[in-house]
Design a protein around this nucleic acid. Sequence first.
DNA 1: CTTGAATATTGAAATATATCTATTTAACGA
DNA 2: TCGTTAAATAGATATATTTCAATATTCAAG
Lengths: 104, 104
Amino acid sequence: MLKRGSRLDADFIREVSDVIKMLGHADRIRMVEYIREEERSVNQISDWCGLSQPVTSQHLRLMKDKGVLSCRREGTKMFYSLPNPLVHKMLDCLATTQEDMMRR
Amino acid sequence: MLKRGSRLDADFIREVSDVIKMLGHADRIRMVEYIREEERSVNQISDWCGLSQPVTSQHLRLMKDKGVLSCRREGTKMFYSLPNPLVHKMLDCLATTQEDMMRR
DNA sequence: CTTGAATATTGAAATATATCTATTTAACGA
DNA sequence: TCGTTAAATAGATATATTTCAATATTCAAG
């Protein structure tokens, strides 16, 4: 279980800081948490999050651009999914942190 | 190992999104990574990161305000440390993600 | 080729962040 | 108290983010 000796590389930091920035927004956390369960259409997401369609679409585009999300078209619908491993891990962190806080 | 059934609470999300936002910045990731090893003075941090003293101080204040960092005065020096468990976990995520990327 | 449903884009306005220079505060020792 | 070192703050400017309303695009059905 290394801890020292594993310094983060400068390029890597630059890359992931963009991903992390995407999660620094309450609505987007809710989005990825919802999308994580299974792929979701824009309509599903905007309903679930209580956001307008354009705002939802905008967040989704940002997250897709930064590599947080992928998407797939099916007819007129666009389904977003969450293949990014870092984001999965971060969501796990959040879940366990919330658990820990409740326990104490 | 629960995964479903552990939905994130709205208040919790609002709280942690501020913490995560603080990590959505390359310089601040470098800072907390450095501070994590042991508590550090502002001068140490600004030297290490190659940032001006005011900019460093500003980042530190933000992170302290959001609960990412704590600090302690010793004479004219101010030492910052990293007690936040979520931030520790997130840094671990970054380290293991970098590891995984190198392995493949 | 027109229509309706789903999603995306645009441009403007409001707000928030980041960075710089200069100045200020705080603690300490002579 | 004065001078020095360390850190914080202020004010100005530049840049980025977020949101909204309106419009445009894409696809499938008929």
